[in-house]
């Protein structure tokens, strides 16, 4: 059996599972929409008080910004750091290990099919927000084309780093604190809270050095047309770099973790 058909099989099962939990899909959608909505409203209030704009963003651009943030974050987010603790504690991992394939493949396939399904809900939400907040859509074709690889790589930057982080569960059973720290950093430095351009210069630098900017902000800035061609190429290169680091992290942490797992399962 080749990798392709394994992925197809996984897609099919995940779809079937997801279709069983339609209510939780809607609940989850609310969780996805609220944070960008809140920051959008805050910044819109600030912009209105300050004569219509903050920095280079006016109210309509804030709307566009946060809608794209929402979609990008949806396409790129992963949840395994919340799940591995359970997999290890309850021994679910043992079953996954029996399969003649690295468990990360099942997770990627699951993630992709979940996204394929939920995007059908996210798009209408984005359109609705776009109408409610009078977003300003002015995207060039070049940027739209560059957005595709940037988006795909943003997903893998988050996936590999997030998955490596999930492996912390091999060493501690209480990984919530670690996860929270990870997400707090992400909130600030990935552009979820405010466009990075509105942060103090020191934080902008920190965001660029950290992987966070390349998980969300970069594809968003790109699509909004805030980046020069040179910056786009550099950004894509940095994403490749972080994917490489993420892959190495996954490899080493997994190997070390799995050794530990068999030690305490026995």
């Amino acid at each position: 059996m080749n990798l392709g058909s394994i992925y197809r099989a996984q897609l099919k099962t995940t779809m079937a599972v997801q279709l069983q939990y339609r209510v939780s899909a809607i609940i989850w959608l609310i969780g996805l929409v609220i944070p960008p909505l809140v920051y959008l409203v805050v910044w819109r209030t600030v912009a209105e008080a300050g004569g219509g704009s903050v920095g280079s963003y006016d109210t309509a651009e804030f709307a566009t910004y946060y809608i794209i943030v929402m979609v990008v974050n949806h396409l790129a987010f992963i949840w395994h750091m919340w799940e591995y603790d359970y997999r290890i504690r309850e021994g679910v991992l043992s079953g996954l290990l029996l399969r003649p394939l690295h468990p990360i493949h099942a997770d990627i396939a699951e993630n992709l099919s979940y996204k394929a399904l939920t995007t059908l809900v996210v798009i209408p939400a984005a359109i609705l927000m776009s109408v409610l907040f009078k977003a300003d859509w002015n995207v060039s074709l070049t940027n739209a084309l560059f957005f595709i690889p940037a988006m795909i790589m943003a997903f893998f930057v988050q996936f590999f780093l997030g998955w490596a982080l999930a492996m912390a569960a091999f060493w501690t059973t209480r990984i919530n604190a670690i996860n929270r720290m990870y997400f707090l950093g992400k909130l600030f430095l990935s552009g979820q809270m405010a466009p990075l351009a509105l942060l103090p210069p020191a934080l902008q630098t920190a965001a660029s050095i950290s992987p966070y900017r390349w998980m969300i902000s970069f594809p968003v800035e790109l699509l909004l047309g805030n980046l020069m061609l040179r910056e786009i190429w550099i950004g894509l290169a940095v994403q490749v770099l972080w994917i490489g680091i993420g892959l190495l992290a996954v490899k080493f942490v997994w190997r070390a973790g799995i050794r530990r797992y068999s030690a305490f399962g026995a």
Binding site: V46, A49, G50, V54, G55, M193, L199, P200
Partner: peptide
């Protein structure tokens, strides 16, 4: 968050 916001305005 407050600092960033109030960097750009006086009241919210």
């Amino acid at each position: 968050g407050l600092a960033v916001v109030f960097n750009h305005t006086d009241t919210l």
